[in-house]
């Protein structure tokens, strides 16, 4: 998406840029730190809306709320290698997880959702989980609110 001022005067690009609207100077909108960290460390596989790719990368849209409402599910979210092995600090990882729950869930976030904290992340983060598929499947199967995997 084109953005920023097109200072047409003084550039030979004037003709080429005819079709471009003349934008006034726009304020820069910084991506929030948590969202930026999601983009840099997670979005590449999980995609901007968390939907992933069937058979390759699981969608987080339906599972985030479910998993973050149980102790085992919360441990999973911290231990899954993409989270555990990311270069984020424990605090940053907690903030990304909270951002994900609040912004990528297809379901409403329950009022009693407890934010992840750095301490909680630190206590579960290592060692990373290897048997991801099986653990995820069993967590979602046993969840009280059954959802599509």
């Amino acid at each position: 998406m084109k953005r920023g001022a097109a200072d047409v005067a003084g550039f030979g690009v004037a003709c080429v840029c005819m079709a471009m609207p003349l934008w006034a100077e726009q304020p820069v909108v910084l991506t929030s730190a948590a969202q930026a960290n999601y983009m840099l460390n997670c979005m590449g596989c999980h995609l901007p809306d968390g939907s992933g790719a069937a058979g390759k990368v699981p969608s987080v849209r339906d599972s985030l709320v479910t998993l973050s409402s149980s102790a085992a599910g919360r441990r999973f979210l911290v231990q899954v290698p993409g989270a555990s092995q990311s270069p984020l600090t424990d605090l940053e990882l907690a903030q990304v997880l909270n951002w994900m729950v609040r912004n990528l869930s297809a379901r409403a976030v329950p009022a009693d959702f407890i934010d992840f904290t750095a301490a909680e992340v630190a206590s579960h983060r290592r060692p990373p989980l290897v048997k991801v598929r099986e653990t995820r499947a069993s967590l979602l199967e046993s969840a009280p609110d059954q959802i599509a995997r």
Partner: peptide, 11 residues
């Protein structure tokens, strides 16, 4: 350098 290829001076 900015080049006349359709990119704006901001890009």
């Amino acid at each position: 350098l900015p080049v006349a290829r359709g990119e704006s001076p901001a890009d």
